[in-house]
Design a protein around this nucleic acid. Sequence first.
DNA 1: TTTGAAAACCAACCGAA
DNA 2: TTCGGTTGGTTTTCAAA
Lengths: 152, 152
Amino acid sequence: MKLDPVDRTILVALQEDGSLTNAELAERIHMSPSACLRRTKMLQESGLIAKTVALLDPRLAGLPGTAYVFVTLDSQGRASLDKFEAAVRTVPEITECYLLAGQSDYLLRIVYRDTTDLERIHTEILTPLPGVVRVQSTLTLRAVKRTTKLPI
Amino acid sequence: MKLDPVDRTILVALQEDGSLTNAELAERIHMSPSACLRRTKMLQESGLIAKTVALLDPRLAGLPGTAYVFVTLDSQGRASLDKFEAAVRTVPEITECYLLAGQSDYLLRIVYRDTTDLERIHTEILTPLPGVVRVQSTLTLRAVKRTTKLPI
DNA sequence: TTTGAAAACCAACCGAA
DNA sequence: TTCGGTTGGTTTTCAAA
């Protein structure tokens, strides 16, 4: 899939505001609505535009806290990893999970309401995850930047 | 702002698919389109629904890599932090930046095309950021989970 | 909740490069 | 042949009844 400059303009605009109507988007990029729609649908059907979602304000949602947590497992066999990962996927407070290079450690991103909530997540959710032997949290004081935009 | 179960249902649905038409959303939550629209608009005007955006597939966008980078500054004065943060906000490859507790360190999330690109970002972008004395990268091998959904 | 006018969508078709 | 523009029937929106 190759993108021309017009495609990139569309992607930049829709990453910024996915609620733009086709007519608005077409006007912004100086193109007729039908041509614009054709390109946008192509970008969606190709999967490059994976989905469009509503983003909530974390503060107003009562979830102002973000923590990154390094987790070490007791075993790095395929079965252990699969079991851990399956469990991770069911926990809504874990918004991201990455397998790290090296000693089969994972990095988790956690969202939480307050320190009491973080403590609960730590003891009642993270520590009991299958195979976990160590949990090391990195608290964030303040989000300086947070974007879902990819630099196309 | 207090949310009743119907509001939560709307938020769950729109975090999953922000391109739902009001008619579709109304049917899904077994409500009349007008009542559904009223609630959705309220959630938008309150700011709880902050925006709706298109999410791109990182692989198809040619940006499959994610790295987390810890950065240490040489000075933790207000001016130094402000200068660093202003620079961070202009770098599209930095998708997230958090101020950490402790020694005025920052945690950055970086997206990149390949290891060559990561090297470029490291030497040409991160190291020259104002006030930086140390840059420590944590590479991710694989994304196990990644969601924008907040657990309301 | 219903309704109806305005807006947007989108598939089919046309023309130019 | 491909890409943008135009048309018109259908769907959606959204505020008033």
